[in-house]
Design a protein around this nucleic acid. Sequence first.
DNA 1: CGGAACATGTAACCTGTTACATGATTTC
DNA 2: GAAATCATGTAACAGGTTACATGTTCCG
Lengths: 183, 183
Amino acid sequence: MSLPHAILTALLEKPSSGLELTRRFDRSIGYFWSATHQQIYRELGKLERDGLIRALPAQGPARGQKKQYEVLPRGRSELARWTAAPQDPRPLRDPLLLRLRSAAVVGTDGVAEDLHRHLALHRENLANYREIEERDFPPGKDATPDRLRHAVLRAGIDLETFWVGWLEDTLRRLGLPGQDDTP
Amino acid sequence: MSLPHAILTALLEKPSSGLELTRRFDRSIGYFWSATHQQIYRELGKLERDGLIRALPAQGPARGQKKQYEVLPRGRSELARWTAAPQDPRPLRDPLLLRLRSAAVVGTDGVAEDLHRHLALHRENLANYREIEERDFPPGKDATPDRLRHAVLRAGIDLETFWVGWLEDTLRRLGLPGQDDTP
DNA sequence: CGGAACATGTAACCTGTTACATGATTTC
DNA sequence: GAAATCATGTAACAGGTTACATGTTCCG
């Protein structure tokens, strides 16, 4: 439902090949919409067949040859249509919360260790996002597109902040804080 | 990957029929793991074939007849195994953040209205969760299972709090706060 | 008896995941 | 010329969504 629109957005920001897109989905775009290269190639084929994007002219066989894509007018208007249309917020679906609920029934063996691991990962993400914020959004950049991209990054920062705080708190309340809960 | 374990948890908390499970997935469990009745019936069949749960003895035809399920020992140990096993945090995948990023490219038409709608929905959820907290977790309930369930609810509350704050902030920064941004 | 609500299911489809296949280019 | 890396793809499967089908019980 959203992958094609993620790809259209990425290609409008900068025309790319499949592999370049994959790389970008491992960095900036992937921070809020992840995708593997298999998904991306499949979707690129579909978008091309539907006339929303096209491959820049290239000769020779397909395999192993770089293929650059760009968005066609129909692709841009489809993206504009999707962006303007209302959408309901997706219900939360988080395995970690489910796991705590099941731990309330079958016991907490192994859970605290994994919460510590998650905590470390979220701290890493948070540090990473903060670096990006300092680098890409110094005070003063005020055009609307920048404000929108900054708002998206802030969401990432605030969500990671939430996880770090919640995990610290939960570990403390479980009485199994381990050795490194307040570094 | 997690639906069967959500169902096992729910059935351990209280043996239920398919429809009762569906109802519970619309309330408490669904707050962090949503599922439709079609998914649930499909999965119940699979869990029964695999010997993790069983239907309590009932005669007559299947259609239209209530069917109560309970967890078998193998089901409980599978749930315990899953709960103890490490899992990586799922990468974020949020259509609303993607939409803001695309709005940075194709324009913000229609976006602010929908952000207001989301804001109202998140405020409702938040009020709902706070009521549940007051009702189900008065100060003093301190057994570990309660602390775990309370931690899960706190995550819901904190996440909704994040969304409300982020949406208010984003609407303000976009300069399109509408009429009811600080009620 | 007829309609509403209860209750269980089937089928088709779409999206995402995992494992593997294949050709091209670079590097030693 | 062998190995590593770049680059594009295929196939099979798992999980989630949407639409529909069917029988039962309750109530006026």
